[in-house]
Design a protein around this nucleic acid. Structure first.
Length: 264
DNA sequence: ATCTATTCCTGGCTGC
DNA sequence: TGCAGCCAGGAATAGA
């Protein structure tokens, strides 16, 4: 499941190929991924050059000539593959003057849009977010910390895996009340998030199911997961068994001994 | 504002 | 081996 580090890895793998390339033809075959008239979208894209490529939260943003921004969200199983042969789950194919970009997505939770309106509604990018800014944003919110970290309007880019890993590293219970976190804990959480995200980017992200970058390479950060997907295994820090509960509808993994819920 | 439940989707599991 | 049923979850949405 692509979160910030995976999207960043895809971005980096596309940077050597895309900027400067011109879209010769675009084809769309999923009304779920592209929720507008595919022929109209193809016409709007034809002839445009990719000027720049950037990321905000989990969105990849293609800045095109003529002032258009194409946004891609990979959802759960989306992949952008460079010079790949379109397979059975290819939902969009962009033929360029040199090369081809294939958007592949089994479950079709991903989205391709011809603007960046959705990305602009989000909070600041989690990677590189200043500690003071994080503390300010947090101070303005109430509620449990895990759903808050997953809320893209609060901070953009955290997903289920890295939220669980960051909370473990900061030794904060996923159900802890955000407004009751002491300054030192907020600081620790911020530091844990930055460390986790940076380490995951450095190792090409986590390949849980079949995530790969644009060149088809898997990431390796999953071997560093301390809690995610490790229910019942001993905690790396204290040997207590990792627990799994459901929070906000998501599988949530934590160490019941290291991550204590402060009593109300 | 925050919460839960529901919806979207399908490969890969589990269990019989 | 076959198959039904369930699971995973990012984000939008509805309703409490």
């Amino acid at each position: 499941m692509p979160e910030l580090p995976e999207v960043e890895t895809v971005l980096r793998s596309l940077l050597p190929h895309l900027p400067g390339r011109t879209i010769v033809q675009a084809r769309f075959s999923s009304r779920l991924v592209l929720r507008e008239d595919p022929a109209r979208a193809a016409r709007a894209l034809r002839g445009r050059t990719v000027l720049a490529l950037r990321r905000h939260a989990k969105f990849l943003l293609f800045e095109l000539s003529g002032g258009m921004t194409l946004s891609v969200h990979l959802g759960m199983t989306g992949k952008l593959l460079w010079n790949a042969e379109p397979g059975p789950y290819a939902r969009a194919v962009f033929e360029l003057d040199q090369g081809r970009l294939v958007y592949d997505d089994v479950r079709q939770f991903g989205r391709i849009e011809l603007d960046c309106r959705r990305a602009e509604k989000l909070g600041p990018d989690a990677l590189g977010l200043a500690a003071e800014r994080f503390a300010e944003l947090l101070a303005a919110r109430r509620g449990r910390i895990k759903p808050l970290l997953l809320n893209q309007r609060f901070v953009g880019g955290m997903g289920n895996i890295y939220t669980d890993e960051a909370l473990f590293r900061a030794r904060i219970h996923p159900l802890a009340a955000a407004e009751r976190l002491k300054r030192a804990r907020v600081q620790r959480l911020h530091e844990a998030m930055q460390q986790i995200l940076a380490e995951a980017v450095a190792t090409g992200g986590s390949s849980i199911s079949d995530y790969v970058n644009a060149d088809g390479d898997a990431g390796s950060f999953q071997i560093n997961h301390q809690v995610y997907g490790r229910e019942g295994e001993p905690c790396a820090r204290c040997r207590a068994r990792i627990r799994r509960i459901v929070v906000a509808g998501r599988g949530t993994h934590f160490c019941p001994r290291c991550q204590r819920l402060p009593k109300a």
